[in-house]
Structures are given as C-alpha cells and as structure tokens.
C-alpha cells in the first residue's frame, strides 16, 4: 500500500500513457472502419470478404503483432507508433462488422425516401445513415474500448511504458502492489471509456429518449 502512495506519480503517468495508447487507436480504427463497413454494405459482394477478412485480424496474437510492427513499418522497437498501429488494426477488426451491420439496420424505406428527395450518397451517409447507426456503432465501440484497454498492457513486453509496465514490474520483483495498482487503474480506465461512449451516444441520439405514440 505504501508502495502505491509513494508511486502515485508513476501510476498517473502510466495511466495517461495507457489512456492515449488505447483511445487514439479507437478513433483511428473508427475512421478506417467506417468506409470499410460502408463499402461492405454498399457492394454486396464485398460484405463477406471485408467483414470476415477484418475479423480475422483480431486473431493475430497481440505480442506477435507488436513485435512484427517495427519490421513492417520500419520503426524503432520502442516507438509507441507500433502500439498505436497494432491497436488500430484490432479496432478495425472489431468495428468493421459493427459499422456494416449498423448501416444495414437503417430501414429501406428511409434510404429510399432519402434518395427520392435528392440526397446524394455522401450526404445521405452522413446525415441519415450514420446518425441512425449510432446506437449499433456505439455498442461496438464499447466492446472495442474495453478490448483496447486490456490489450495495450501487453505492449509492456516490448518496453512501451503504460499500465502493463506495472504488471511486468510486479512479476519480475514478485511483488503484488504494482500489479494490484495496475489492475485497478485498468478497470477504472475501461469504465471511464465506457462512460464517455455512452454519454456521447446519448447526446447523439435525442430521438431515442422520447416517449412512444400517444
């Protein structure tokens, strides 16, 4: 316990590192998954290859992906970019299907009437389809957020500092305090991400919080 109080600075630093290493890929992954999911929905033949293909990326073991990244990207082994890119890949793996299914859940009659009123495909996507897909996408994003917070800790093994570093530290020294501190911080971080996504989704979907037909 005293160890934790003595190392609050370190824990804080690790938590911040951990937070951005998990959050930035979440945003980048969403940005990449959106056009992929849209294409999978737009062109029938692409759905299976795109959704199954991106889904397969999730099966790559994270340690292997972290180690491969410098070889593929030509970066330094300690470069946090490796972690960001790897985590982005996982996020894309989780979100592509979500985006495709979210867009697919928009009723045909809504798409047809949007088209018939002269909304072009791009305007229709941003003003009608994506807003209506927000609940589904938010649900996928919550899963991806928790997954990211968890997987990032593995990057401690390639020496990128974040909460995972507390686990390796505790492991090497056979000392429980840092491990407990890291676990608690991970859980708090995951809950915080979840909360932010839920609040954002609520703000973006005011129509879902109104009563039914009178």
């Amino acid at each position: 316990m005293t160890w934790i109080l003595d190392h609050l600075d370190d824990i804080g630093y690790y938590t911040l590192q951990h937070a951005w290493l998990a959050a930035l890929p979440l945003l980048l992954g969403l940005l990449l998954a959106t056009p992929l999911g849209w294409a999978a929905r737009r062109y029938r033949g692409l759905y299976t290859p795109v959704v199954a293909g991106t889904g397969l990326l999730y099966t790559i073991p994270s340690l292997a992906l972290f180690i491969l990244m410098p070889l593929i990207l030509g970066t330094q082994i300690l470069d946090p970019v490796n972690v960001v890119v790897a985590m982005t890949i996982y996020t894309v793996a989780l979100l592509t299907r979500t985006v495709a299914d979210g867009l697919g859940a928009v009723p045909d009659s809504v798409i047809a009437s949007a088209t018939a009123m002269g909304l072009g495909p791009v305007r229709r996507l941003f003003t009608v389809e994506l807003p209506l897909a927000v609940p589904v996408i938010a649900a996928g994003l919550r899963v991806a957020a928790v997954s990211n917070v968890s997987i990032v800790s593995v990057a401690a093994l390639i020496g990128v500092p974040q909460l995972g570093s507390l686990f390796t530290d505790g492991f090497y020294r056979d000392f429980l305090d840092p491990i407990v501190a890291g676990l608690v911080a991970c859980v708090v971080l995951a809950l915080l991400f979840d909360l932010v996504i839920v609040v954002l989704a609520r703000l973006l979907t005011p129509w879902l919080r109104t009563g039914g037909a009178p």
Binding site: S109, A116, G120
Partner: peptide, 23 residues
C-alpha cells in the same frame, strides 16, 4: 441531374419512410 430532378418531384411511399432521427 438525378438529384436536381428528384428535388423537384414529391415522393411518398408506404410506411412514409420518415427520418426517425429528425423531428
């Protein structure tokens, strides 16, 4: 132009096809 053409034609369908997220 297809979009221009459509904006000049009223269109009503079964189930109305209203935008659920708009008032």
């Amino acid at each position: 132009d297809a979009a221009q053409l459509r904006r000049g034609i009223g269109y009503v369908i079964q189930h109305a096809g209203l935008f659920p997220h708009r008032t």
